[in-house]
Design a protein around this nucleic acid. Structure first.
Lengths: 347, 347
DNA sequence: TTGAAAGCGCTAACAT
DNA sequence: ATGTTAGCGCTTTCAA
């Protein structure tokens, strides 16, 4: 990797211009010249430096990816989809994670733009109120949001409100009247709000009373006394929990187990995300599934379409269908409200 | 991001050299000049392009990361550790995944070197027999392996042989005499070999007979008839399974459940990797834990030490300590060999 | 068909 | 303290 186009030119006995042509437009150079240059390239193990090209204002074929964290497999799944497409299309990825921190989001975006990425794929905490995104729009920087659920910006996600609505309705159809929503501490995201709205609407539509979402500490081994109190609160005690994401659902399940609850007999659990590992749990986690990999792929395709000018020019945000995974953590309730009776698990 | 140093110079009324100095060595320029230039930079929203610097042969502050996949959280955990350090130290990451494919490994490494990364952090399928790594050594390209367990190259990992040995010995100490090792289909890695060796040695040391590792399809919902046959094979039927990684262990647990085995009553399970999600399982997965995040961080630090010349100059490979996570999927066997009796789970 | 030369954004001698 | 200039690796007119 240490040789430059000059070395090749000298070695082959031609000018650097001809070498450049031999590489980028082989048909414009003489057959024997071409052969000699190719030999030289081979002999010297020459690989053209993208830096020179990039500086010339050619394309960098660099895409920036900004994600909150990789500790949540949701994002790892997306990223895997993106990476596969990137590799097959000759793009390179620059990755930065933000831990949901606004400063790190800003820093990541600026760093990536400075590096002259051709576009950005990002998941931010809150897309609607994000001043940086307005800047990007103004500057004409190309980007696509993933998972951020907003109609105002180019984005790919599921319909979070509707998905939550469907999930909670499913719980209600299974006889649950006291459904409580649990959220992580990092709940201040557009998605979290929409999911809560979906929960609220499903409850109201059924004539039930939505309650405020309960915050749960992601990192605690056990459920806090405050949370436990909510779970055992007399006649209105919840029989089903709607967790705002799968990781949270798993933490909650462990907490319930330690507190001697059994799932789903004492408490039904519904997650959100459709993590692959959820299916490996025992019992397998019921979840509102987003097609994470496809979201990544779709975001990629839209971005590349815009970059390569083939802008489909259609509506900004793309909504992919969600599905309900009927895991065994949700069971039907056949008795009076608030009383869990033996019941068959979902198919 | 569209303005160059020239624009700033023109706007401020100085030469580009002075602007450059204002940015890189502020103390060498007049206070009022500096102020004007900073105003110009602010007004124009100028951010120096790394490309120019990089082309000048300055440092790129780019690090390449090559991983088999992000679908296995082992690698996502490492990457998270790397990314945090990179962000705090002003480096940028270029990521490529290989799906354990040798061609993709080669392609990734070449692409990254062409981009003039200052160093590589990689996990390859098999470090010992990898011709590319020899090339890197020859070219003086800096790299550090993660998880690859080899003394011949710069690497950070646990002692896979010893870790497997410890794990299997633990199973034996719990009364298991028929321990079978299960491996995924992508088993041709240095780690897999060493883990099998550890298994073998632990068995032999206890006077037991190691068996060939049994291959399991990662993607199947159910265990294959062939595998099931091995699990129920008369008097020598295994009472404990040592799975070569946690993801496999989880798949196997699900397969066992579907086949009406219960864990750990009918079969003890020990995984390898120490995935965070393993602890959220029910029962929590016993595992030989590698400090994945720390492995990523340590690899980073060694690479940066070499890049920045502060090469600690010590031994090539760094071995981090593994731990045994005594999950409830392993139980003591108190009766005759091959017969599972009721027994208390591990603490 | 090939070569000479300019220039992409930046830094670092060298000059003033 | 500031400016001039050369050059990093490459592509691309423009000439020959």
């Amino acid at each position: 990797m240490k040789h430059t186009i000059k070395d090749v030119a000298a070695y082959a006995g031609f000018s650097i211009a001809t070498v450049s042509r031999a590489i980028n437009a082989p048909h414009t150079v003489n057959r024997v010249t071409l052969a000699k240059i190719r030999d030289a390239i081979e002999a010297l193990q020459f690989r053209p430096s993208p830096l020179g090209r990039q500086l010339r204002g050619e394309r960098t074929r660099l895409i920036g990816v900004v994600l909150p964290t990789l500790a949540n497999p949701v994002f790892a799944e997306c990223l895997q989809g993106i990476d596969d497409l990137a590799a097959s299309q000759g793009y390179r990825l620059m990755l930065m994670t933000t831990q949901y921190d606004a400063d790190r989001e800003r820093h990541a975006i600026e760093t990536l733009l400075a590096q002259r990425v051709e576009g950005l794929i990002l998941t931010v905490a809150d897309a609607d109120t994000h001043p940086l995104l307005d800047e990007l729009d103004r500057d004409g920087s190309l980007y696509v949001l993933m998972h951020n659920d907003t109609a105002r910006r180019p984005s790919v996600s599921v319909d979070n409100r509707r998905a939550a609505f469907d999930g909670v309705r499913m719980l209600i159809e299974h006889g649950h009247e006291h459904v409580l929503m649990l959220a992580g501490t990092l709940a201040e995201s557009d998605r979290a709000r929409l999911r809560y709205r979906g929960y609220t609407e499903a409850m109201k539509l059924a004539g039930l009373t939505p309650r405020p979402a309960l915050e749960v500490d992601f990192n605690a081994d056990e459920l806090s006394p405050a949370v436990l109190a909510h779970l055992t609160s007399g006649p209105a005690r919840p029989t089903a929990l709607f967790c705002s994401n799968d990781l949270l659902a798993m933490v909650v399940m462990r907490g319930l187990r330690r507190a001697r609850f059994s799932v789903p007999e004492d408490m039904s659990i519904l997650g959100f995300d459709g993590l692959a590992v959820g299916e490996l749990l025992s019992p397998p986690l019921a979840s509102i599934c987003a097609p994470n990999r496809e979201i990544g792929c779709a975001a990629w395709q839209r971005l590349i379409a815009r970059i390569e000018g083939a802008d489909d020019g259609d509506s900004l945000s793309l909504t992919l269908p969600h599905t309900l995974r009927k895991g065994a953590t949700v069971t039907a309730l056949s008795g009076a409200a608030g009383t869990a009776l033996p019941a068959q698990p979902l198919a």
